[in-house]
């Protein structure tokens, strides 16, 4: 069985680079990376300021010290009720993203590699679920959830997030499955493997890069969503982290921006951590 993702395709067909790495290019890359990080500076300055200091100084001034950060974290964590919300979001994101990516991969498999009538229509049917702006799902889902008594339950939120995260991976995984050579299927079929074994043992392992990419994306999407949680699961027991953040902020933005931003940074840490953990998986598929 060959592993296709490790195959190093030299897609520009350029000769390998001259042995000393190109430092000029590296410098250029470094400049771009720094430019990319520049917008974060405001946030990084603000979280080190106390509320009074923030109010008194221009937004981009340097903080007087680093000690207010701890107090900001404490305030954000306690007042923002973040612990329960983080737990909820972890559940939604972990269950929703893994289930969605798995189900999407299963659905993408026949769409990419089997012959049957109206294949494109079936694909469009799956894809059509998310072409509406998401706000318009709120009212019908509210009535539906009320009927099924799923409002403010973890189960309801998990189901919804799983469903909403299916179409995008179907599109992406179908594409990469189409790119895999058909010969491996035939070889496996000659060996008497069932379709499911083929899918599970051969196709999936070859899609590790794209699978981890879409998993990460769907995980962060669920983690970052506040819209659905705010109408369908707003009770403190089921509230998602971004929703908790906005409840904390309130519509009049009253707690100081410094504490708000500290809370936002805290709320982003788990997805960043996941990214760091998955980075190896993820980047291996990207080495070209």
């Amino acid at each position: 069985m060959q592993n296709l993702t490790s195959q190093q395709a030299n897609w520009l067909a350029l000769p390998p680079p001259a042995s000393p790495p190109r430092w000029g290019k590296a410098l250029c890359g470094l400049a771009i990376a720094l430019l990319w990080l520049l917008p974060f500076s405001y946030v990084l300055l603000a979280i080190f300021k106390s509320t009074a200091e923030y109010a008194a100084s221009p937004p981009l001034s340097l903080p007087e010290g680093v000690s207010p950060l701890l107090e900001n974290i404490r305030m954000a964590w306690e007042q923002g009720d973040m612990a329960q919300a983080m737990l909820n979001s972890s559940l939604y994101a972990a269950v929703g993203a893994s289930l969605a990516v798995l189900l999407a991969a299963m659905a993408a498999y026949p769409l990419a590699r089997m012959q049957f009538r109206h294949r494109n229509l079936w694909f469009l049917l799956l894809f059509a679920g998310t072409v509406f702006p998401f706000q318009m799902y709120l009212i019908p889902l509210f009535f539906g959830f009320q009927w099924a008594e799923l409002l403010d339950t973890h189960l309801g939120m998990c189901l919804l997030y799983t469903a909403i995260c299916i179409p995008f991976p179907v599109l992406v995984l179908r594409n990469y499955m189409q790119n895999l050579s058909l010969e491996i299927d035939q070889a496996a079929r000659l060996d008497g493997a069932s379709e499911f074994t083929l899918f599970w043992r051969i196709i999936l392992p070859n899609l590790r890069g794209p699978m981890s990419a879409v998993f990460l994306l769907q995980f962060t999407w669920i983690w970052n969503d506040m819209l659905f949680s705010s109408v369908l699961g707003n009770s403190p027991d089921t509230r998602s982290i971004m929703n908790a953040l906005l409840v904390f902020q309130g519509s009049y933005a009253q707690s100081g921006p410094n504490i708000m931003l500290t809370a936002a940074v805290l709320a982003s840490l788990p997805t960043l951590l996941l990214f760091v953990l998955l980075r190896r998986q993820f980047m291996q598929g990207l080495r070209v």
């Binding site: 189900l103 999407a104 299963m106 659905a107 498999y109 026949p110 769409l111 089997m114 049957f116 079936w122 049917l125 799956l126 059509a128 679920g129 998310t130 509406f132 318009m136 799902y137 019908p140 889902l141 539906g144 189901l159 919804l160 799983t162 469903a163 909403i164 299916i166 179409p167 179907v170 379709e195 899918f199």
Partner: peptide
């Protein structure tokens, strides 16, 4: 066979996304 692979995804998407649409 394809339907068997697609069924769970179709079910969820239909119930929670296509009906609202």
């Amino acid at each position: 066979l394809a339907l068997r692979f697609m069924a769970p995804a179709l079910l969820l998407v239909t119930a929670l996304l296509l009906l609202p649409v």
